[in-house]
Structure formats: C-alpha cells, structure tokens
Write a protein that binds this DNA or RNA. Sequence first.
DNA 1: CACTTGACCTGTCCGC
DNA 2: TGCGGACAGGTCAAGT
Length: 288
Amino acid sequence: MPELPEVETVRRGLHELIIGKVVQTEQHDTEKGFPNTLADVSAFLLGATITDVRRRAKVLMIDLSSGYSLVIHLKMTGQLVFVGETRFGAGHPNDSLIGELPDKSTRVSLLFTDGSALYFNDQRKFGWMKLLPTTEIPNMKFMQKVGPEPLEDDFTPQQFMQRFLRRAKTNIKAALLDQSVIAGVGNIYADEALWGAKLHPLRLVGSLTEEEFTLLYHELRAVMKLAVQKGGSSNHTYVNAEGKKGSYMDFARVFRLEGTLCQRCGAIIEKTRVAGRGTHICPVCQHL
DNA sequence: CACTTGACCTGTCCGC
DNA sequence: TGCGGACAGGTCAAGT
C-alpha cells in the first residue's frame, strides 16, 4: 500500500484522533509470520498517554508518555484504523471501507480508556510494529541509512542530484525506489514522476543531465505534494486512519493506466517490468 | 562496494 | 467451477 503520501495521510489523521488517549489494553497476533516486539515490553504501553504521532520516510512513530514509542511500517498492505466512541469490536464509520474490527487480518488492537480503539491490520503480514525507547529510534538500522525527506523546504535540486549519483550505474527507477537515496518514494510516485519528467525508467542514473535531474526533482515533489493533498492513492487495501480512501488515482497520468491514451501525446500507455516492479510508461514521451 | 534477485505472506485475477 | 501461476503501492538478505 503506502508510500510517503499515504503514510503522511495516516499520520495526520492519527495526530488529530489519538493524541491524549490512554492505552488500557493491548492484544496482538502471536502467529509466526508477524514480527513484532510488543510482548516483551507491554509494561511501557499499558497506562501510557499518546503524546505525538510522527513520520520519517514510510515509518510512523506514535510517542508515549512512558518514554517509549510504537514504531510502525505498513509495508504493502498494512492499515492503522481508529474506531472512535465504541466498545471493543463494535461499530465503525458508515462510509468506511473497513468492516467490523477487529477482523481476521488484525495484528494488533489497542484499546483506549475512553472506549475508542486503534487497529493495526495487515493482510500480508509484511508490516511490523515495534515498541522501543523513543531515543532509540534514530539508532535503528533503517533510520541510519534512509535518505532525506523529499518534501522538506531545505531539500535542494543539488542535494537531489548528489544523492542519485551514488547510484550512477543503475537505472533511474531502481534509484528512485532506493530508500537510502531519497526517503518515501514507492512504485506509484516513481512512475508518475518519471512520466512528468519525460524520463524512461531504464535510463542510467549516470546518463542524466543536470537539467533532467532538476526537472525530475520538481516533478517528484509536485506529484508527492498533490498526492498528500488528495489523501494518497487507494487500491483495495489502502485506507487512512478513519478507514477511508484517498483520491490521487483520479489524477494519475500513467500508473495503472496501461492501454489508455497518454494525455500529453496520445500514444498508448504500456506496462513493463523494471527493477522487479510493474512499471507504466508512455513509450513516446519517455524514450531511452 | 554496487547492483540484482529472491524471499517474506495472503488474496485476487486471469487463462486454461 | 477448479486449478496453477503471476502479480500486488516494500524492504532485507543473499547472491554475483
């Protein structure tokens, strides 16, 4: 499911909904195949108040008054859904895509003292939720190597180009997806940004001109900003903190549009495979 | 070291 | 209607 815009949408929703809530009980999936470290340290979870909800790259952090944080990666199919003013297991927003919670893909349930709840659902179990001291988060392996946030105001085209040149001999799509180059880009927004910059995904990073890097920088930021504004993109699994979908796909220009006409030149959009991922291009605009 | 590929899981869709 | 295989918005460990 989620790339930076989707995770940011979830973060904003949770920030509105769960700050100040006090954790009363917690249940988690103990099946193998779902990695989490909640069991060992639940003493730092129960009775704690939620103080902040943050994001770095595609990782969410829910800070607690105990000095610990829930650190969450949704990977492909993870969802964090808040259910307000109900009892455990009862009810949900009327326009939600989510049925009654918890359900068979619920991995973690957090019940708050006011009767509301937060559910971590994950069909494919790639996602994870860990509880660790807030001060330890920057020491996580992922945090050590992850690249800069592309939407930060102080992120410049020069930085952008320099980060990519670390991967000069691979193709531009693989480099965009590499979290150590730039944080938060995934398959949707990689394809959308490459179309915007008229770059073929197989172009070698080292072959791009400074002008092409600058254009890609602006296209990537524009696409991600629009997606945040639209609440992200939704397939059948992505939902925000209220269980609702985002509308970016209404604005997509190539992603999952194979067989339709390129809005820029009228050629037929094609789907191929690059860096092991389904890849959508306009074969005319985005030449090698 | 840089780069590519397979593995982790479950569900769905598509062709036979 | 059933079955096999490919594939799904991510990342890491292993391989070359």
